[in-house]
């Protein structure tokens, strides 16, 4: 089977991986010059944290997100399985209590356990929540790794090619994985702008993703090794994919500093921004629009849910599987 995929972000690359596994010949069209910063995926945190997402996301996200860790382990060998630690500053402890009520599969930890898990945070927090089954990856290395494997598997990549799904011929199926760029064709899509930072510091070490809860700007810090930390992210109902605001950076840096003072001396390596594509209920969807299969609406769950959505897409294409209406029905 000859399949064209438009978009080489996490959605397109995971789809390609699933299609290749079923024997398809895949061509991927990407408007950018390479796998890189034009994709929302480039700016992601890389947390595989289905239980933490339960705080605000639907239960189907929590259930389906649990498949992510093993998928990424199978395909990239770069998954850090150290769990997530969740904290709040003393004056925001009500946020921690609320978080604990809305999530599961965690242990309450005290000063001693925190010091054992993260020595650099031991003095700073006397209570927290530890989600032992969660994990994190480096999103950029992961999509580049998928890219390398797909190239080795014979997938044809056409960079600098911005194409309309309807104009492609010679393929039995066309799959649109273009994220927010599909907004004109999919009016129900909206953008949720996110700003993030990459900081470098040798004065603090973390083994796992840390969430610092806050009523307005909750923060997550994800270690990328070599002193590099991803710090994010804002969530602004906006389709803007550029323009980082001073206030967002100020608030993220302030929270990072509250997490650990070493971050005040950290080097700002990158400041990034993009807009997450989302449907009205924040759940991703696989949909036939005429002859084109769209895989979109990953919101803040790209790396968490792309593997499952890729499988649903593959089932729909190869087995004529009926795509369920509701995300809950995907929970097989």
């Amino acid at each position: 089977m000859n399949i064209a995929i438009i978009g080489a972000g996490v959605a397109g690359l995971t789809c390609a991986t699933e299609f290749v596994a079923r024997g398809a010949k895949v061509t991927i069209y990407e408007k950018g010059p390479s796998i890189g910063e034009q994709a929302c995926s480039w700016w992601a945190g890389g947390m595989l944290a289905p239980w933490c997402e339960g705080e605000t996301a639907e239960s189907s996200v929590v259930k389906l997100g649990q498949h992510a860790k093993s998928w990424w382990k199978t395909h990239t060998a770069q998954v850090q399985e150290n769990g997530t630690l969740v904290f709040a500053l003393d004056r925001d402890l009500s946020e921690l209590r609320t978080f604990a009520k809305r999530t599961t599969d965690y242990q309450s930890v005290g000063a001693q356990e925190i010091a054992q898990l993260e020595p650099d945070l031991g003095e700073r927090f006397s209570q927290g929540l530890f989600f032992p089954e969660e994990a994190h990856i480096d999103p950029r290395k992961s999509i580049l790794s998928l890219f390398d494997q797909l190239v080795s598997a014979g997938v044809i990549f056409k960079f600098n090619c911005e194409v309309e799904p309807g104009t492609l011929s010679g393929f039995e199926c066309v799959v649109d994985c273009t994220g927010l760029a599909a907004q004109d064709a999919i009016p129900e899509l909206r953008g949720v702008k996110g700003e993030m930072l990459l900081l470098r510091s040798r004065d603090v070490t973390l083994q796992r993703s840390i969430r610092l809860l806050h009523p307005r700007i909750p923060l997550y810090v994800v270690p990328r090794g070599n002193g590099l930390f991803m710090v994010g992210a804002t969530m602004i109902e906006n389709t803007e994919r550029t323009r980082v605001s001073a206030r967002s950076v100020f608030e993220m840096l302030g929270s990072a500093f509250a997490l650990h003072p070493a971050f005040s001396e950290a080097e700002i390596v990158e400041i990034g921004v993009d807009a997450r594509p989302a449907y009205l209920n924040n759940l991703p969807k696989v949909n036939w629009r005429g002859k084109v299969l769209t895989v979109n609406g990953m919101y803040r769950h790209g790396f968490l849910l792309a593997p499952v959505m890729a499988r649903v897409a593959a089932n729909a294409i190869f087995e004529g599987y009926q795509i369920p209406e509701l995300m809950d029905e995907y929970c097989y």
Binding site: T56, A57, R190, A278, L280, N281, N282
Partner: peptide, 8 residues
């Protein structure tokens, strides 16, 4: 609201 659908 967590999502526009939730608001509606």
């Amino acid at each position: 609201y967590p999502s526009p659908a939730s608001l509606a």
